[in-house]
Design a protein around this nucleic acid. Structure first.
Lengths: 249, 249
DNA sequence: CGCCCCGTTGAGGAGAGTCAATGGCTGTGG
DNA sequence: CCACAGCCATTGACTCTCCTCAACGGGGCG
């Protein structure tokens, strides 16, 4: 829960009411080992999830087995807010590492949002940011080269980890295999391997067996053409009401 | 406004309250000729838009001029709901054809949503559907071949036009140039041209100077691997309250 | 009538995919 | 503690899709 709060605090001035409302939502906590499926395409959605720890991926599988990873869910991300209105999953969610998830029944979640406008605004904001990340993913896959794609994605994930307060510096290794990167970026694992080799030789990243570590974020940003404005970190809501008082962490 | 209502009615039982609430929202109507910019990246967003007539596109431009079209906005689509919480545009919106737009100040929009839970739910649903469409676009660009991409996009747009009640049959020509398709699908205009030529030779589509018409939707769906479940047409909200009574048009 | 935009077509090239063999961790069990 | 198995990752050779550059053409509109 802390990573969710840390993240939301960057954008909205959370007061104690929201804090307690979030904390008191009826929920259960589940843990899944790496590789296990959390949501299956076609099943009915009845819960909203918040990642407390670990990484998860959302993906679709085509009939002939091709896989496209649509998004990474990091600590502090909430997902399947669509359960609130759209009852059927059109995708899979799996644990990339071991994960701990907070699971809130969507009916309870909806009640809380309806009774607390600020809470609703905060989660509306979270959905907006997720959509912005999806758009950037489209740009990345559609119009960037392999090197740009890899650098750009790695930078985004790093930023998101920082936003959630998961890491302090650039030193965390990210649990990304070649296959995962390939399926996220619309490339083949072989080509991802070659691309990573180039970035490594240029001193931009460190690569280990199942992990990638940033070495030169500025250099990477130059290669990637990375502009983090889509993460809206500097934005402040321009709304009347509870957001009028600015807050700095 | 009619196309928005037509579309929303497929998913939720709209009652008269929602109808009048929508209708009475303070707004102005603007018209833009084809090619004109509606929203510019970096500017502050203060309005929510509903497309009443015509097509618009949302896109991003990279520093070196590469363009990626992220989404098509058809009659009945509302966009920049992110104006409610996130104040800065991270993308462009332009008129693809001449368009007529309903413009609602985001503060007014927010007030209406906060005072009317059903209205909020309906627009929450719209945002969820848009996100689902974005995810499918990622899959399309990331893991499909050029032929599949073109067929799949054309089928999606056709379905969305049908959902909004803009067309009755398959007979409407869609205002898509080679450049637009290329920038939407992550291809070059030349390759789009060649791909369209193949689809035309197989009798799947009709192609005119600035328009594409479906000729054999079933055949196209086979080529594309098109599965429309992500549009959630058959879904019914599984929520308690105002949605308990089913409705058929 | 003529221009210009949009589309087509051809040739050559580059980036990414596929197939396949090899190599090195890592965890496991004897 | 070592041997082995299995999983990732790397590397090479070849292929193919798609891109780039460029020339040409035709239809619409001023």
């Amino acid at each position: 829960m802390n990573s969710l709060l840390t993240r939301l605090r960057r954008y909205a001035a959370l007061n104690d009411d929201i804090f307690t409302a979030l904390w008191r939502l009826p929920h259960r906590v589940i843990e899944k080992p790496a590789g296990q499926t959390i949501v299956t395409a076609g099943e009915r959605l009845g819960d909203v999830f918040v990642v407390e720890e670990g990484w998860a991926i959302r993906y679709r599988i085509l009939d002939d087995g091709r896989r496209q990873i649509v998004n990474f869910m990091l600590p502090g991300d909430c997902f399947d807010l669509q359960a609130l209105v759209s009852a059927q999953a059109d995708h899979y969610v799996s644990a990339l590492t071991a994960v701990r998830l907070r699971v809130v029944p969507s009916t309870q979640f909806l009640l809380a949002m309806r009774s607390n406008a600020e809470l609703a605004t905060v989660f509306w904001w979270a959905a907006v940011q997720e959509e912005s990340i999806l758009r950037e993913h489209i740009v990345r896959i559609g119009r960037r080269t392999a090197r740009e794609r890899v650098s750009h994605l790695v930078l985004e994930l790093q930023r998101r980890l920082l936003l959630a307060g998961v890491v302090n510096g650039d030193k965390l290794g990210m649990p990304l295999t070649r296959d995962v990167l390939a399926d996220a970026l619309g490339l083949s694992p072989v080509h991802v391997s070659r691309t990573l080799a180039i970035l490594r030789m240029r001193g931009l990243i460190d690569v280990a067996r199942r992990s990638i570590r940033l070495k030169d974020p500025e250099g990477l940003a130059k290669v990637a053409g990375f502009n983090p404005s889509y993460l809206h970190v500097q934005d402040r809501p321009a709304l009347p009401g509870p957001f009028d008082d600015a807050q700095t962490a």
